[in-house]
Design a protein around this nucleic acid. Structure first.
Lengths: 213, 213
DNA sequence: CTGGATCCCTCACGATACTG
DNA sequence: CAGTATCGTGAGGGATCCAG
């Protein structure tokens, strides 16, 4: 038996032996957003050493969670994508993220926000019930990070990048967490300047209702 | 910032910084079954070094997931129990366990099954829908491990120990996984000797339907 | 006996440099 | 761009010891 095994015949233990390794679930998080190349992953995970990224990708591939695919010519480059089995981690990753979000207060001095982490965060706090019958689009800007959400009758699509004709554009920072957690009302968030809008400003409370912890 | 942090302002990362440490979720798994003393945890986790158990309990306590409670006199002993926040990990632990169970084939040479891991496994694969209107009790024996299940109209209680008047007593081993996963039919499991029964044998297929991956 | 603390050793991880 | 190679450090593993 491997030296680092937990020594139990148990589903949870098997799961941890794979995705319990350091960085593994964060890599999965980013791959849940979209397939990525090695350097894409690096960019989204600036603090991961390349040898660790390399090792994790190998392990995840061997475990049948990630598939390494060589793109056809002429690019010939490599992308890593989740297998079907890997994709089944989505719900777990979303729930873990929601659980951990309660511990988010202020970003630490060196802590960054990435597009992928924000996309998954929005997915994790989306409330389909509250979005019944809604048909709205948002663009969300956190510093350099720009993502957009398309809400369509209880369904959500989130992706990176701008959305030129979004109904509401929200410019903000990490303080958006307070809005989403209900610690600050939409009105107050506008008043204290942590959120700036363009478009139909009245949609902000709709937004805060649709995306809520 | 701590040296071992991931450096991202993200709910998933916060979660991993606490329960992503080695052994942490396994400790939580056992505490989800019941509050435990230090030595109870050791017994259920034979391969964990005591200093690690000690360190994890401190970290989990500091993070507000575990509460260290000193029992009143005369025992004066200490129990560790999950806080409300810690208990909210239950669903995640159950799902992770179910996800990882697909990788369970045969137990490795040194791999053991513990009562707590089995209790959580049964919880994780319980299908409330299939148990609608049912009222059955089972006793399950895997070698030394004895647990029992009380199914009551879509609700389940699992606990350690025998249940003298159980409707069905199932004596088996790790091969029970094949039955639960549907890789072996109840009839075959009896035929090939991996399962031995006492009580109302016809209940076995009911069992396999109620507890199923 | 419970509930740890302490020691030493090893290896996984982290930082950085380098290569096809 | 997509990794491999190298090397130092500290968390984890294992055994032992100690206080209440």
């Amino acid at each position: 038996m491997a030296k680092r095994a937990y020594g139990q015949f148990c589903g949870l233990v098997r799961a941890l032996e794979i995705v319990g390794e350091r960085w593994a679930l964060v890599i999965v998080r980013d791959l849940l957003v979209s397939p990525k190349r090695f350097s894409d992953l690096r960019r989204g995970l600036p603090r991961i050493p390349t040898n660790i990224l390399s090792a994790r990708l190998k392990e995840l591939e061997q475990a049948g969670i990630v598939h390494r695919r060589v793109l056809p010519r002429p690019s010939g480059s490599v992308v890593y994508e989740l297998t079907e089995y890997g994709n089944e981690l989505e719900d777990i990753v979303l729930r873990l993220g929601r659980w951990g979000a309660r511990l988010l207060t202020k970003p630490g001095p060196e802590e960054i926000v990435t597009a992928d982490s924000m996309i998954m965060a929005m997915r994790s706090i989306f409330r389909p019930k509250a979005a019944r019958g809604l048909n709205v689009t948002y663009e969300l800007r956190l510093g350099e990070i720009i993502i957009h959400m398309i809400v369509n009758n209880g369904r959500l699509k989130v992706a990176e990048g701008a959305l030129p004709d979004a109904d509401l554009v929200i410019k903000t920072g990490p303080a958006i967490k307070a809005l989403i957690a209900g610690e600050v009302s939409p009105a107050d968030a506008i008043a204290n300047g942590t959120v700036r809008l363009s478009g139909d400003s009245r949609l902000l409370s709709r937004f805060a209702d649709t995306f809520h912890i």
